Simulated assay, not measured.
Amino acid sequence: MSDQSAPSSPIPNGQPAPPLQLNIQYTKDLSFEVPGAPEIFVQLKEQPRVDLSLDVQARPVEGGPNVYEVALQIRADAKVGATACFIAELSYCGVFTINVPQEHLEPVLLVECPRLLFPFARNILADVTRDGGFPPVLLAPIDFVALWQSRRGPGAQPVGTA
């Protein structure tokens, strides 16, 4: 019988390390631009249409075993007709220590870690758009499993193996 247990380094009290630990979370990059200010605020007569894009990136962090940075990349482009109202870009990251078998690493990095980060990124985007003079952009819950599965095409290289 082969040992399928996760690589684990015991924590000081002798217990195995937890499978997923969020060490820190932070805003890596935040940009908010209102290209047509101040005129856009005078001309704005209707709710802008907001186009959203979201991506998840993960990479190993040097200096620690089983340590990864996971980044949620969110972009919101708001327009009324052809007129740009605002552009918001957010890169919200977390540094995680992950102790799971290799075959579970990718779904943990691209599904479980973003689930933990998402509520905080959602709040930052809502605050920055509201503070920028527009209605807050409230992101709907994201199905990170479907996002991960859509990224996995034929010949896709697993995350964290580069």
Score class of each variant (00 low, 15 high):
151 R>M: 15
58 A>Q: 05
131 D>M: 09
17 A>D: 01
93 C>K: 03
27 T>E: 11
48 P>Y: 01
88 A>L: 11
22 L>V: 09
66 N>H: 15
83 T>W: 10
60 P>H: 05
41 F>S: 08
131 D>C: 10
77 D>W: 04
17 A>M: 01
79 K>Y: 07
119 P>D: 00
135 P>R: 03
151 R>W: 13
52 L>P: 03
56 V>E: 05
77 D>H: 09
32 F>T: 08
147 L>I: 03
15 Q>N: 07
138 L>A: 13
105 L>V: 00
65 P>W: 04
127 D>G: 04
83 T>D: 14
60 P>W: 12
13 N>F: 14
5 S>F: 06
62 E>A: 15
96 F>Y: 04
96 F>C: 02
17 A>G: 10
88 A>S: 09
54 L>Q: 12
91 S>V: 12
14 G>H: 06
120 F>I: 02
61 V>D: 06
40 I>A: 07
148 W>D: 11
80 V>F: 05
131 D>Q: 13
27 T>Q: 06
74 I>W: 09
21 Q>R: 11
148 W>V: 01
105 L>Y: 07
53 S>A: 14
23 N>F: 01
39 E>R: 15
18 P>K: 02
144 F>I: 00
144 F>Q: 00
10 P>V: 13
123 N>P: 11
24 I>N: 15
154 P>R: 12
65 P>A: 02
11 I>M: 14
124 I>F: 02
9 S>P: 02
18 P>R: 08
